[in-house]
Nucleic acid binder design. Structure first.
Lengths: 146, 146
DNA sequence: ATAATATACTATAAAAAGGTAGCATTTTAT
DNA sequence: ATAAAATGCTACCTTTTTATAGTATATTAT
């Protein structure tokens, strides 16, 4: 499963923000915690806020917060926002003409297997992530290591 | 699902070679049929032969043929050979430290969903692909459109 | 007011992926 | 032998992705 580094960063940032209980996440703080290149992360954060996942607050004491309830954002939302709406919908063989009317040889098999995955990505919101994190924290010392 | 273009080309070429009944596939022929950039494809074919999927035969009347039985090559083999052995095994959140001892928050869920997919890729050999192609060819006019 | 601390923007550099061109080498039909 | 037809190799170019630097703008504690 290969997502672009940028998408991984995005999921990483949002997962971090979702599981901590801070009121505000300044870029520099996130940068330090997640070891993502400073300027690149800043641009990513601006991008994520333009995409409606987080809200930016400028000025002293500013930073970023989620702009809507964690339960309304799932993993597929983020992946598709970053990689394009068709990212999880492409033909395994790369045939542009592989569509319902003219499926390629792998079509049925692939669609079935892939849908299992996107199902998971759709059914998991960042609220679920937070719940799991809060629950597991008690038993496992370090869940996200960074 | 995002594979690199090169990996898509690789699957495309091998799927094509597996389903046609030619004795030999010269690079120029594959290039014309599959519309993959000529020189790039040549390099890819050399690469695929070095990786043991196909054998190159030089000189007049040369070209490429599968170097082993179609039933011994599955889709995961090719994807991992192209993208690296860990390609289908990476953490969704991109945490390098997400391992069995210290799983990340998404680990269980993700591993489960993903394994459904790799299972399909493992269980489908290029012989299966050929069988499916031969069977479907009768009912669907054009299965692989290019 | 002003200094401190944020994000926003723009331009550019570096690295990786994708693609091109030309020539060398190998094989075989003639 | 030789020409044709194939792969092999190397160097380079283009595009995309990732990363950096510097400056502008906004907000607020003091």
């Amino acid at each position: 499963m290969i997502l672009s580094k940028t998408t991984e960063y995005a999921l990483n940032v949002l997962a971090f923000m979702a599981t901590r209980n801070k009121e505000m996440y300044p870029a520099d703080y996130l940068c330090k915690e997640l070891k993502i290149p400073r300027q690149y992360l800043k641009r990513l954060l601006t991008d994520l806020s333009k995409k409606g996942f987080i809200t930016s607050i400028r000025g002293r004491n500013g930073g970023f917060i989620f702009s809507r309830d964690l339960s309304t954002i799932n993993f597929l939302h983020v992946i598709e926002a970053m990689e394009g709406p068709e990212a999880m919908n492409t033909c395994l063989l790369g045939f542009t003409a592989c569509i319902v009317d003219h499926p390629c040889v792998m079509h049925d098999l692939w669609t079935k297997a892939r849908s299992k995955m996107t199902e998971t990505l759709t059914n998991t919101s960042f609220a679920d992530l937070k719940n799991k994190y809060d629950k597991d924290k008690k038993s496992i010392a370090q869940i996200i290591i960074h």
